[in-house]
Design a protein around this nucleic acid. Sequence first.
DNA 1: ATACTATACGGAGGTGGCCTCCGGTTGCAA
DNA 2: TTGCAACCGGAGGCCACCTCCGTATAGTAT
Lengths: 190, 190
Amino acid sequence: MGETVVRKGPRRADAQHNYEVILAAARAAVAERGGDIVLEEIARNAGVGIGTLYRHFPTRQAILEAAFLDEALELRQRAEVLQSAPMPLDALIDWLRLQMDFGAHGRSMGAAVMNAKHTEGTEIQIACVDMREAGAVLLRRAQDAGEVRLDVEIVDLLRLMHGIVIANEQAPDQSRVDPMFDVVIAGIRT
Amino acid sequence: MGETVVRKGPRRADAQHNYEVILAAARAAVAERGGDIVLEEIARNAGVGIGTLYRHFPTRQAILEAAFLDEALELRQRAEVLQSAPMPLDALIDWLRLQMDFGAHGRSMGAAVMNAKHTEGTEIQIACVDMREAGAVLLRRAQDAGEVRLDVEIVDLLRLMHGIVIANEQAPDQSRVDPMFDVVIAGIRT
DNA sequence: ATACTATACGGAGGTGGCCTCCGGTTGCAA
DNA sequence: TTGCAACCGGAGGCCACCTCCGTATAGTAT
């Protein structure tokens, strides 16, 4: 373990540049095609060889993780901001909606990334744990305020949001997303 | 449209036999690998050439649909049986649990099949519609009994069940499935 | 400025799965 | 038994994945 680790430290200028260009292309590709991105196309769009792409991101998983990292960081930040909102339940609900919006944007990448969340040590794993903990504070506040059932855990909510997004992904009409969300919210209330 | 349709009627004996052998192999493969089955492997296990497989099931989608068809039929049947159960809400809950169990068994095939549910005319589409309608009766009974909110639709419930299964698929622990299910049930109550 | 080398680039090529196509085979009816 | 429509099988083209290594160059030492 820990053999071909991608160096994060100081790199040659061209390497750093390529890394960023590839990542940008990857994000664009993920945004419109979801999880089933075509790696060689990303390399082409980034204007680099396929070998260069694979050096920076040794595995398909690595690219998806990198593309999702920012979202995880932002979701954590949003949670921390909401932690001081006046209405604990509303804050939680707002954050859960964000989860869905981000998930919808990231499309079915979710499955791939969800998997990564559980493999130790990854950068994305740490980011996801942080995000989850920040969300857990929101949940706890709502529970302490007596507005949410005590037997609900944060993972339940994250997975339910994720599930709603995934289940509606292939559907022609997105019109039932809100009702489904409402059901979940009603279900966690005391 | 409607060109290379797979004939359902009388076929030559060897063709009929191969069809069944392939389908059996496909079901076995789907049961353990989910949606990302390897078609050539199925053909190999069935002891037929790849060409034969493709004649009987023109597309990957067709195989998944065929493998899932039985489940849809059975779920419909179960719903019809439960329609005469004494407690409408309990009947609905039981049926939704079945949805999850079947989905869990069918694994991530769900996404592929969910898609098929919305393409017109397919055999699986008809089966799914029938199943959904049978489930809708269960829902309506529970609503008429005043036990379930009126703004809930059957698709919401099916998708939520599907979502729970998918979202938990990659997770190492399945222990949160029941709590998530409970949240949904609590959420649809009046 | 020049030379040197660790670092990085790029794409050819091997692998594997998808799907088509067609020459050969066989069930079945007459 | 014969004939043919139905059926079989797998070779082969395609595409994406991923590795490997010869070439190029940024950064540094002189």
